[in-house]
Design a protein around this nucleic acid. Structure first.
Length: 478
RNA sequence: GCCCCCAUCGUCCAGUGGCCUAGGACGCCGCCCUUUCAAGGCGGUAACACGGGUUCGAAUCCCGUUGGGGGUACCA
């Protein structure tokens, strides 16, 4: 029996970043959806570096993009294509267009174009002035595509349905710059055809470019159109497209801020799409299996850092402890770690790790939970001190005084410390939350942190006593 | 201005004409648990932009309005 799936040609998709900056969150999402679609359908995932604008491209950034895609777990199937190496193909295409009369040379300056537009009544755009002037090649001369005067260019978008553009709204756009370089649209049309791309999945910001690419493809003799799917934009709280200027869009920054690639990818997958059973956090293999391009929503999605944090915390907690320790190294051993490198003790951190793991949302928060163990003296948080030591002065004095004695002689084990601390506090009728607070602030500097008994045990009797005495002394007589 | 796209809780998704007194998740609020904070458990807050149609019946279909966004380069 022949199914429609078997009749369709194998899926070939591509991610086509332009190396003019780091990998952008929006680009990463496009890459991810292309990849999900390819893996779901058993198709082919291709990469194409759109570096035709040589002035703005940078080879190092290309490598950076590859590495970030790898970090995300997005792989590709064939050697990446580079548009900078295909200039001859674009030249052949534009020559063909020139020869067939579908394109012509133009020597109008921007000012002339604008002046004529103003004369016409403010309607901006090129007016086809040079269409039949027979302009010869030369300095300052570009090549423009002659768009049809009437009719429409339409296509069916997998996400948006039928989209139609009247050809009369399309101006004669530039396809070759004065310096001889082909423009993005030409490269796009030629490459997608040469690479046998069957599905073009990209951001909605490229939607209006589609009729131009289609016109170019048709003029070049390609009668089969690829299937298009324009993904909803990822926006900021102002509902505007994420911008490099005012938003955190560099994926590299999320790595540095302690996000796990699994969490980032999983979160990105929920922007514009959701699994049918509503389970958002799940292994990538399941996402691949469930992914359905036709179910992608058409409205833009807000990049919600709070929700990403939640995903990340879930993924951190799901890590094996050894993995958590391993992945935390980068922040523990960093130059800007809060303690002198020689005071850091891996064994002490390992003992504390399980308790830290279930509390952090990002790996970057890890040092803040254990700094008191590796610092000569705790960093005192002023708000905590005010609340516990000043506002709760009497209880603080009582507990501190008692622990100076009891900690000196009790068993230095979790149970021993517990007995010393709460045995006294309970007898005094002090709630445990109140009883532990002064000791916590005295030894760790803060009123929040990992469980106290384990913390003190690792801190050691001597250091604990030193800090308790110092805090008591800071409170003055009585 | 013109072209194109979009419109369900604050946010991300469910919902594809009756199962919706609209469901889940994040956030937020409360309670429980508890040595702090987390985690966990329980409960709560909160939405179909508006107006016309079509239909026995509309969050779901159509039209309009309003609102938002994207694009309007010799960038991609």
């Amino acid at each position: 029996m022949i199914t429609t799936a078997e009749q369709s040609p194998p899926v070939r998709v591509r991610f086509a970043p332009s190396p003019t900056g780091f990998l952008h969150v929006g680009s990463a999402r496009s890459a991810l959806f292309n990849w999900l679609y390819a893996r779901h359908t058993g198709g082919t995932m291709l990469l194409r570096i759109e570096d035709t604008d040589t002035d703005r491209s940078n080879p190092e950034l290309i490598d950076m993009i590859f590495r970030t895609l790898e970090w995300l777990g997005i792989d590709w199937d064939e050697e990446p294509e580079h548009q900078s190496r295909r200039a001859d193909r674009y030249r052949a295409a534009t020559d063909e267009l020139l020869a067939s009369g579908r394109a012509y040379r133009c020597d109008c300056t921007r000012d002339q174009i604008d002046a004529r537009a103003a004369e016409r009544g403010g309607k901006p755009g090129y007016d086809g002035f040079c269409r039949d002037r027979g302009v010869a090649a030369g300095p300052g001369v570009v090549v423009r595509f002659r768009t049809p005067d009437d009719g429409v260019t339409a296509f069916t978008d997998l996400i948006r349905g039928d989209v139609t553009f009247p050809n009369s709204d399309l101006e004669d756009f530039v396809i070759v710059r004065a310096n001889g370089d082909a423009m993005f649209l030409v490269a796009n049309a030629v490459d997608d055809a040469d690479m046998g791309i069957t599905h073009v999945l990209r951001g909605e910001d490229l939607l209006n470019v589609t009729p131009k690419v289609l016109l170019l493809r048709h003029a070049l003799g390609h009668t089969e159109d690829p299937v298009f799917a324009h993904l909803p934009l990822i926006v900021n709280e102002q509902r505007k497209k994420l911008s490099k200027r005012r938003d955190d869009v560099a994926l590299e920054d999320y790595i540095a801020r302690g996000y796990l690639s699994e969490a980032v990818v999983n979160y990105l997958a929920t922007l514009g799409w959701g699994p049918p059973d509503g389970v958002e956090i799940r292994p990538i293999a399941e996402i691949i299996e469930l992914f359905d391009l036709t179910q992608v929503v058409s409205s833009s999605a807000f990049f919600d850092l709070k929700k990403l944090d939640h995903f990340n915390a879930e993924y951190i907690r799901a890590l094996a402890v050894e993995d958590f320790i391993e992945r935390s190294q980068r922040w523990l051993l960093a130059d800007d770690a809060p303690w002198p490198a020689d005071r850091y003790d891996p064994a002490v951190f390992a003992a504390m790790a399980p308790l830290v793991q279930e509390r952090v949302r990002t790996l970057a928060e890890v040092p803040g939970y254990v700094d008191f163990l590796f610092l000569a003296e705790p960093v005192v948080d002023d708000k905590s001190w005010q609340k516990v030591m000043v506002k709760g002065h009497d209880t603080a004095v009582l507990m501190l005084d008692a622990m100076v004695d009891r900690f000196a002689t009790c068993d230095w084990t979790g149970a021993g410390i517990e007995d010393a601390l709460f045995g006294f506090g309970d007898a005094q009728g002090i709630k445990r939350g109140q009883a532990q607070a002064p000791i916590r602030v005295a030894t760790t500097g803060r009123s929040v942190g990992p469980p106290l008994l384990e913390s003190l045990e690792l801190l050691g009797r001597d250091t604990t006593l030193t800090r308790v005495r110092a805090a008591r002394a800071a409170l003055g007589a009585t």
